[in-house]
Amino acid sequence: MADVAKLAGVSSQTVSRVSNGHPGVIPATRELVQAAMRELGYRPNSAARALKWGSFHTIGVILFSLANVGNSKTLEGIAAEATARGYGITLIPVAMPTEAAVIGAFGRLEELAVDAVIVIMEIHLLDAATVGLPPGAPVVVADSNAGDRYPVVDTDQSAGGRLAVEHLLSLGHETVWHVAGPEESFASERRLAAWRETLEAAGRPVPDILRGDWSAESGYAAGQELLQEESVTAVFVANDQMALGLMNALHEGGRRVPEDISVVGFDDLPDSAAYLPPLTTIHQDFAEVGRLCVTDALDQVENGVSEPGVTLVPTRLVVRKSTAPPPQD
């Protein structure tokens, strides 16, 4: 710091203010100091700054899979908002969704210098009695039903499921079949419950559900099963990737989308508009979920208060070309 001050022709106190982002430095002086830092390769000592200011300016993020498009986009939203607020992120991926792996991730987190924790998970392990988040650490959970213990930010899964079914019924379909996600997923179960409740409220038959695992392969398998059901004219699929596999199976089996069977997905992935036909789906704002996670976490850091509860990010129906009125006899 003394070397930087000497090169920039300022006091060490001014260098300290610049390195800590203090607003009371005129722009010309700040640029002079930053240029000297770059020339000398100076890096502020984050541990020393944390001891002085009581903050590491880092948020820990635990998540199960970067291969999941929703998780990746939520993480992008977290990173963008954290950067805008002057924070970095420490990422702790959990390779397997097992209780031991989750406990291990929490254990590693306790050893790291973070100011708050964001947990991106939808597996019931968060409710396991032996799983506990670091005591005293501000925590926000994305996409879970932990609202009675921690602040939660989630997509409005129920509203999305209801929009999908109502759209298909409004086109004149007698009922809507459903390809659900895995049972251990809260998102899957909320979408399934909304599907069933919407059909029941409309006085329509409730078909047996089919199960997938979020993959296109499982959607393809569900599509092969549905080919055996001549009465099917509309299907709500719990995510876009399964919808892709399902439409492929229907195409191979000679059932046209949407002329014979209408299909609605959920997520509005970037590729869904390029499906053949382009997929009608429910849009999730993953980036907004990530942004609100950071906002809630830093509110706790700054105010020292954690209020359990759920913040829901609205969903919306995106109508494309995979839905139409049912075929006429």
Rank of each mutant, 00 (worst) to 15 (best):
A2M: 14
V4N: 03
G9M: 01
Q13H: 03
T14L: 14
V15H: 02
V25S: 04
I26P: 00
T29C: 07
M37A: 08
R38K: 15
G54P: 02
S72Q: 15
G77E: 08
A80C: 01
E81L: 12
R85W: 00
Y87G: 12
T90D: 11
L91N: 12
P93F: 04
P93C: 10
M96G: 00
P97E: 11
V102D: 04
I103P: 00
V114F: 05
V114K: 09
V117E: 05
E122Q: 15
P138H: 13
S144Y: 02
S144A: 15
R149N: 03
R149K: 13
T155N: 15
D156G: 07
A164F: 04
H167N: 02
G172I: 11
H173W: 01
V179Y: 06
A180H: 01
E183R: 14
F186M: 11
A187P: 04
S188F: 02
L192H: 12
E197R: 07
A202V: 07
A202G: 05
R204K: 13
V206G: 01
G212H: 01
D213M: 09
E217N: 04
G219I: 00
A221E: 09
G223N: 10
E225R: 13
L226E: 03
S231K: 11
D240S: 07
M242I: 05
R255N: 04
L269V: 14
P277E: 09
T280C: 04
H283W: 10
A287M: 06
C293K: 06
V294S: 11
G309V: 07
V310I: 15
V313W: 12
P314H: 10
V318P: 05
V319S: 05
T323H: 10
P325D: 07
